[in-house]
Computed example of a mutant assay.
Amino acid sequence: MKNPPAKPAQLITKEFAKQLNVNYNKKKAASVTGKSKKKEDANAIWYSLEALESYIHYIKTNGAKEGYNVDGIRFYFGTYPEDEAHGEKAGLTTLFLVPTGKKVESNEDQLKSFALVEDETPADIQSLSPMNYGNIGRPPSLVY
Results as ranks from 00 to 15, higher is better:
M1E: 11
K2D: 09
N3Q: 09
P5I: 04
K7M: 10
K7D: 11
Q10K: 04
Q10M: 10
L11F: 12
T13A: 04
K14H: 10
F16D: 05
A17E: 07
Q19N: 12
V22W: 01
N25I: 03
N25Y: 05
A30D: 14
T33G: 13
K35W: 02
K37F: 15
K37M: 11
K37R: 11
E40R: 13
D41A: 01
D41T: 00
A44I: 06
A44M: 13
S48C: 01
L49V: 08
L49R: 03
E50F: 02
K60R: 15
T61D: 13
A64C: 03
K65A: 05
E66R: 08
G67T: 01
V70D: 00
G72Q: 03
I73R: 01
R74N: 03
R74F: 13
F75L: 03
F77H: 11
T79F: 08
D83A: 11
E84I: 07
H86D: 09
L92M: 08
T94E: 08
T94L: 14
F96V: 00
T100D: 01
K103W: 02
A115H: 06
L116E: 08
V117C: 13
E118K: 08
T121N: 15
T121C: 12
T121Y: 07
P122F: 04
D124K: 06
I125S: 02
S127R: 06
S129A: 08
P130N: 15
G134W: 03
G137N: 01
P139T: 15
P140K: 15
S141K: 11
S141R: 09
V143S: 06
